[in-house]
Amino acid sequence: MLLAISPPILIQIIVWGLIVGCIYVLLASGLNLIFGVMKVVNFAHGEFMILGGYISYSLSIFVGLNPYLSIFVSMIVVGVLGVIIERVCFHQILGTSKLNELILSLGLIYVLQNTMSILWTDYPVLINSPFESRVLDWVIIIGITMLIMTGFYILIRRTKIGRAMRATSQNRVAAMLMGINVEHINMLSFGLGTALAATAGTLLAIITSITPYSGEIPALKAFTIIILGGLGSPLGAVIGGLGYGLIESVAVTVLGGTWRDAVGFIILILVLIIRPMGLFGEKEI
């Protein structure tokens, strides 16, 4: 099937897979950070992504702000909202039961969806690119992803907060004994994770339209990606995200559009059977 496609179009298909992969990288990295540090499965992560897209959309429509600059505003807004939600909701039930966390995050999906539906209606919206050429948009999307992921890497690997996050992720009790305020780290991680989701949402709204309900499937894919890449592995989220985007694009080409969502889950099942800790995860001792 792929051989029947002309090389320039095949290249476009691969490039498109990478662009979609960039959005998955940002979304999965945020989810991975929240899970890695707090061990919380946040099913409402996709809704934070869409909220980011809507905030950027509003800024571009009502303030006339360049959508690529609005990313940073929506990151801050959604990040702060993430911190508040962590304090008000997750902090209260953390460590009580996994079921409580699950129900809370599922409940958040509906609260956020309905709030967005009231604020922006159910009609789809698309952020209009400020550029004539879509190629420029694609280059910028890849560039912004690289920039944000580099900043994220530096924060995690080279700063005191990042070290505290990694320490909390590895051993929460030991981190507390070492004087790390794990509650602050939880708050920061949740805020940073949702801010990354907001970035993904803005980029998504630039390439396709969004509605309040558009976050559900991408969130499921982000879970697949972090399991695929290895839970808690930042590199795994990057490679997993890009790989997932590519696999999805090739699957649609070879098998048809119906397989877009199914193929990733098939691969996930295979990975879990062959390598349960994910591609870049480490075996627990």
Binding site: I13, W16, G17, V20, I207, T208, I210, T253, G257, R260
Partner: peptide, 8 residues
């Protein structure tokens, strides 16, 4: 919402 691959 993404039809790029099919359209290609």
């Amino acid at each position: 919402t993404d039809f790029h691959t099919q359209l290609l």
